[in-house]
Amino acid sequence: MQISINEMQYYKNFDEIARDILAMAKESLPDRLIYLTSFARKKQMILKLSEPNPSIHIHEGMVIDINDTVCNQIDFDNNAPLIYEDMSRETKLDDLRQALIGANINSYLGVPIILSNGEAFGTLCAVHTHANTITAKSTNTIQTIAKMFSYYLDLERLAYRDSLTGLYNRQFLYKYFEEKFGTGGALFFLDLDGFKNINDSYGHEAGDFILREVALRLEGFVQRHNGVAVRLGGDEFVINLIDHLSKEEWGKHAEYLLSQLSSWDIPLEGFQLSVSIGIALYAPSDGNPLKVVLKQADNALYSAKAMGKNTYQFNPDL
């Protein structure tokens, strides 16, 4: 589950660390423009540049389809750098020729930034307007700097991610909600029905598998909507969605989640695994802290459980 811009904004000293990383890389390749990128949802974002360079037409915050970038050709599986000393002579780059001419780039070094869980974060790149030799020493130095940056990202990620599922944790939810609640939306409180019996009967390994699978399905859902998925603990999850929908439309989201979390391709003989959902809606003008909205969603969840489970209910106060 890729690190998002939402997450990075809460990392301690991210801007300062990124600038230091670029400055160290610049010492090794002083005549190049150095930049840092991240990947998310088949897009590449230019996060930071070593300095403004009017000759090279890329800028901080630029978002590009990953298939339209040279970085897409990096071998992330083997953590290998990608080097083009004279891109004008590379026939394999013909599909990107116009983009390279537009950016005015003809020499490229791209080094993958990979987290400890194997996830590709992005790249550390060095480019020039003209063909240039890139030495093995410079390449090794940039690789070392990229590895140092990945260690920093891993440490920060631990503060905001659940170690088992990779979803965001409670700490992240509080920071995210504090910033986003003013836009209005809905908080879905989910609790798995029958999970304890399955966990007791099949063991924690099976239980952990189910929790990870739930996380994948929830993450897939929020990637198609404006929100985040969180594991509060145990078999309790939260989805916070930022949108202005009718109660009926929110209900359709809940029905979709019910269907997604009641069908399993694993043998659960004698057990039924489903989910109950409590929904709390909040308007931009409410101003309620997260603990209030969570309590409202928890009350709704209690009502859903009381109705026989595998269903959803809105906050009874609505």
Rank of each mutant, 00 (worst) to 15 (best):
E178P: 01
N53K: 08
I3C: 04
G278A: 08
D193S: 10
I113Y: 08
Q223N: 14
L190E: 03
G194C: 08
Y174T: 10
D77C: 07
D265A: 12
A300L: 03
I105G: 07
F121D: 03
P316T: 02
T129P: 08
G233I: 07
H130T: 14
E7F: 11
Q313I: 13
G185K: 04
L187S: 08
D191K: 11
H128L: 14
N240R: 09
L173M: 14
M307E: 07
N288H: 15
F314P: 05
L294H: 00
Y10F: 15
P54Q: 11
D208K: 08
S50W: 04
S263F: 09
L22W: 07
F181P: 02
E51K: 15
D94W: 10
I21L: 03
I83Y: 06
N6V: 04
S138C: 15
R41A: 13
D298K: 06
T135A: 13
I46G: 06
Y256N: 15
L155I: 15
K252I: 14
A283I: 12
H244P: 04
S138K: 01
T69V: 06
Y202C: 09
S262P: 03
E90R: 15
G270E: 12
P54N: 04
G251K: 00
E255I: 07
Q171A: 13
F177C: 07
L211D: 02
S88G: 14
Q98E: 13
L318F: 05
L153N: 03
A254C: 06
I242W: 10
A40W: 13
Q313L: 11
T311M: 04
E255K: 14
V238Y: 05
V230N: 09
A120Q: 12
Y11C: 02
R89G: 11
A186T: 01
A159L: 14
I21Q: 02
H59W: 15
L273T: 02
D191Y: 00
Q313P: 02
A215D: 03
V275D: 01
G220K: 12
Y174P: 02
G166I: 05
C71P: 05
Y10I: 02
K305V: 11
P316M: 11
L261Q: 05
Q171E: 10
D154C: 08
K26E: 05
F209V: 08
N288P: 03
D298P: 08
E178I: 00
N140D: 13
I17R: 03
A280E: 02
D243K: 04
D191C: 04
E60Y: 08
Y151V: 15
V70P: 05
I74W: 11
L192Q: 01
Y151Q: 14
F271R: 00
N67P: 01
G203R: 12
A23W: 05
H57Y: 13
A25R: 01
I34M: 12
T133C: 11
H225D: 00
A206L: 10
G251H: 00
K26L: 08
